[in-house]
Simulated scan of single mutants.
Amino acid sequence: MRYLVTGGAGFVGSHVVLALLDSGHEVTVIDDLSTGHRAAIPTGVPFYQIDLNNYEATYEIVAREHWDGVLHFAALSVVGDSIKNPFHYLRHNYCIAVNLIQACAENGVKKIVFSSTAALFGGNTQTTPIHEATEIHPGSPYGESKFIIERVLHWADTLYGLHSARLRYFNAAGADMLGRAGEDHRPETHLIPLTIDAALGRRPALELFGTDYPTKDGTCIRDYVHVMDLADAHIRVLEQLDRRSVTYNIGNGRGYSNMEVIESVERASGKKIPWNPAARRKGDPAILVADSTTLRKETGWQPQYSKLDDIIESALNWRIRHPDGYSM
C-alpha cells in the first residue's frame, strides 16, 4: 500500500513512518520542517517540504498519484503555547487540516488517520479513566482545534465517504527500540526528555509545574504510551477504515505522577534529578488516564512496552546516543 504522511519529520510521525516501512508499505512524507527534522526521515523515502497552509501545493501532491491512505500529524501541539497564542493555534491547525481533508475528499482518497489528542478532555477533571464517550471539554485552544477537526472529518465521511480514524493520544513517549528515531523538540516541553536532560546535566534543575494537585504526591498524573506502541495502533486502524470511520483513545490505562517519572529516570540513569516546585500551568488537569478498551477489542492492539521504566529507558538510550538530537 502507498501512504502519504504529513508531519512525518516530527516525533510521532517519524515513528509511524518507520512502522509503515517495517510493515512493507510505501511512504511519502510532507513536512514544512518548522518543528520536524529532515534527518528523521529515513533515507530513500520521498519527501516534500510543503506548508499545508498552501492549498494549491497541498492539492497538487494529493492529486499527483493514487494514495491508499493519508496520515495527518502536522500541527502546532504545545498546550501552554496555545493558551498564550489561541487564535494562532486555532487558525493554523484548522486551516492546514481543512486544506488536506478537502484535497483528499476531492481526489478520491478513502482513508485518513488523524492525530488527535487527550487534550479534548483537558477541562473534564472529574472522569477517570477517560473513554471515547466521555464528555469532550477541551481545556486549551490546542484541544479545541483538534475537536473542530474531528467535526470536519465527520462531514468528510458523511458527504464524501472519506473514512477517518480519530486517534486521541494520551502522552506519547520513548523512542524507537532500534535507535532509528527519538524525541527532539525545540524547545522541549515534554516531561520525560526534560527530566532525562536534567539527569545528563544538559539543563538546569527541572521545574515541576504544580505540586499541590489532589493526587498521591501532589503532582499531575499522566498516561504514558510508548511511541512505537502508538505507531502500531496506526497500522492496525488502517484495516478498520475499509468499512467505517472510528474514534479511539490510545493509552496504557495506567497513570504515573510527575514524581514517579523523576524516580524512574533516576533509576535508569543512576543520577539524582535536581528539581524545583513551580506554579501550575493553565490548561493542565490533575489526572489524564485513558480507557483504551475499544481499541484493544476491535483491533487486537496491546502495548508491548507498557512499563514506565521501559519507556524511559528507550528515551534515555536514544538521548545518550544522540546528545544533540538530530543535529550532526
Results as ranks from 00 to 15, higher is better:
173 A>S: 15
132 E>R: 04
128 T>E: 10
130 I>A: 08
128 T>C: 06
167 L>P: 06
146 K>A: 05
146 K>G: 06
151 R>A: 05
171 N>H: 15
145 S>R: 04
160 Y>W: 08
135 E>W: 02
139 G>T: 10
141 P>V: 01
131 H>T: 05
152 V>P: 03
169 Y>R: 00
157 D>M: 11
161 G>H: 05
148 I>W: 07
149 I>Q: 04
143 G>F: 11
135 E>R: 11
132 E>C: 12
133 A>E: 14
157 D>T: 10
170 F>P: 08
165 A>Y: 02
166 R>F: 14
156 A>Q: 11
167 L>G: 03
149 I>W: 05
146 K>F: 09
150 E>D: 12
155 W>D: 14
156 A>V: 04
142 Y>G: 06
149 I>T: 09
132 E>A: 10
164 S>Y: 11
167 L>A: 01
163 H>E: 09
162 L>K: 02
152 V>Q: 07
157 D>Y: 03
136 I>L: 14
158 T>L: 13
128 T>H: 03
154 H>D: 14
134 T>I: 13
131 H>Q: 07
132 E>W: 03
151 R>L: 07
133 A>Y: 10
153 L>Q: 01
166 R>N: 14
160 Y>A: 11
144 E>Y: 07
131 H>A: 07
141 P>Q: 06
140 S>I: 01
135 E>G: 12
164 S>R: 01
130 I>L: 11
173 A>Y: 15
148 I>R: 03
134 T>C: 14
129 P>Q: 06
132 E>D: 13
136 I>H: 08
153 L>R: 00
168 R>M: 11
135 E>V: 13
157 D>W: 06
131 H>W: 05
146 K>S: 10
131 H>L: 03
168 R>D: 13
148 I>V: 07
158 T>K: 09
169 Y>K: 02
153 L>W: 00
141 P>F: 08
136 I>G: 08
156 A>E: 09
171 N>Q: 15
138 P>G: 00
135 E>H: 08
151 R>Y: 01
133 A>T: 13
133 A>L: 14
163 H>F: 04
145 S>Q: 04
168 R>H: 13
138 P>D: 00
134 T>M: 12
172 A>E: 15
170 F>I: 08
138 P>F: 01
136 I>W: 07
129 P>E: 05
163 H>W: 05
144 E>K: 08
159 L>E: 14
144 E>D: 12
150 E>H: 06
172 A>I: 13
162 L>H: 00
150 E>C: 10
148 I>S: 02
141 P>S: 04
167 L>S: 06
164 S>K: 01
146 K>D: 12
139 G>N: 11
161 G>K: 02
167 L>T: 03
161 G>D: 12
169 Y>S: 09
172 A>S: 14
128 T>K: 01
166 R>K: 13
132 E>F: 07
137 H>K: 12
147 F>I: 00
153 L>N: 02
171 N>F: 15
135 E>L: 14
149 I>R: 00
160 Y>C: 10
152 V>E: 09
157 D>C: 08
173 A>K: 15
165 A>K: 00
153 L>Y: 00
134 T>S: 14
172 A>F: 13
141 P>N: 02
148 I>C: 03
155 W>R: 07
132 E>V: 11
140 S>T: 01
144 E>V: 03
163 H>R: 05
161 G>Q: 05
170 F>C: 09
133 A>N: 12
155 W>A: 09
142 Y>K: 07
153 L>I: 00
162 L>G: 00
172 A>G: 15
156 A>R: 02
163 H>M: 06
131 H>Y: 06
148 I>P: 08
